[in-house]
Nucleic acid binder design. Sequence first.
RNA 1: GGCAGGUUGCCCGAGCGGCCAAUGGGAGCUGACUGUAAAUCAGCCGGCACAGCCUUCGCAGGUUCGAAUCCUGCACCUGCCA
Length: 421
Amino acid sequence: MVDVLDDLQWRGLLGQSTDEAALRSALAEPLTFYVGFDPTAPSLHIGHLVQILVARRLQRAGHHPLLLVGGATGLIGDPKPTAERQLNDAEVVAGWVERLRGQIEPYVELDGPNPARMVNNLDWTSQLSALDLLRDVGRHFRVGRMLAKEAVAARMASAEGISYTEFSYQVLQAMDYLELHRRHGCTLQFGGSDQWGNVSAGVDLVHRVQRTAVHGFTVPLLTKADGTKFGKTESGTVWVDPALTSPYAFHQFWLNVEDASVDRYLRVLTDRSREDLEALAGRTAERPGAREAQRTLARDVTALVHGAAAVDAAEAAAAALFGRGDLEALPEDVLGAALAELPHAVVGEGARTVVELLVATGLCASRSAARRAVADGGAYVNNTAVADGDAELADDQLLQGRWALLRRGKRTLAAVDARPR
RNA sequence: GGCAGGUUGCCCGAGCGGCCAAUGGGAGCUGACUGUAAAUCAGCCGGCACAGCCUUCGCAGGUUCGAAUCCUGCACCUGCCA
């Protein structure tokens, strides 16, 4: 049995932490830990997935998970270093809490001898009066330290400044730790590396109030090789919700990961063993063009999030659409299944021009952008470059008398369904 | 409440009466090369009925033949003072 902490370290999941030796000895016995997710969107994204998987690794090592969805903190908003957040309506946040809960639960064990528990910080903050907050909680916080937090300091230095609302966020989150310590004996919190300030604030508060040393660590945020944002495609964030990011698009995202990062992602997002991954890295170094590592990553992570059937569908679709073979030669069922994975537009009666179709399918944001794509030589119908954007789609271009495959650039696809009239 | 400074396209940031759809950088898109990778090079990067036209430079008015640029009011941000 590999030591959890060693495993986390090897996978690159350990960032800052409170006293590491103390943390290590604490983890020698089963302990209760928590990680929190704020409902700031209707779905979790792949950045959150990293955190959930850390919780899962800890649970599998015998520790007791408390998974917090921040019904209260989500109403306030963790200060971003750049700008003030737009506050969301209470009903909206409450709805998101439910959705996130549902998205988190599948990744952990909710039954059995060591079940994960879901908690919501609204439970212990909604009835708290402002005076109680100021008298009982506020007195444990020093403004100087609060101002020193990275995000707060950044905002203080910005032209916009920071509202008292967001400034208070760290108090709420620290209270969570204290509350979970009291209620459930929680002695470890982790979070993304941007959460270090909040994690340590919680550790401090528990120490002040309970006179107990508790632990905390951060998980480095996943980055691309050049240090830039991870988890974005041109159409935005990669979500876990299949309605927001289709399983096909999800699979493609991982398949397109740059060589320099694929090994790191595999360690973070899959359960594969060290030996397994080192062997894979060796094969990748020999034949990078085969992209075996990317294929493995795409397969594992898509299966984890969307299930094995989704992997098969995504792979089959990609094989059909990116294959060198003639699209016309594809059997109808294969083609139909592949196209079904793509964003598509149904066009009725009226013949449409390529420019119109590029916009209708969402491949281009505007007609101007579509014209540009055509002018750049980056628009294709059925894998053939389009010369004239105003040309209408001809009946004899339709696959199986009905479909057309639209492509912008090398790998952005969409389907056109010209239903029989 | 007073005084000073600020608000420009996704972000940063020039512009300070016509030559401005607006310099530059970043991000992004496309092409070439390759491997649905990276790097590199080239083009693009408000909208449309696209050699032209329309709508933009916090908001609303005004001055002017003409404003992102000047004036007035309002909103918000920052700093100093009360």
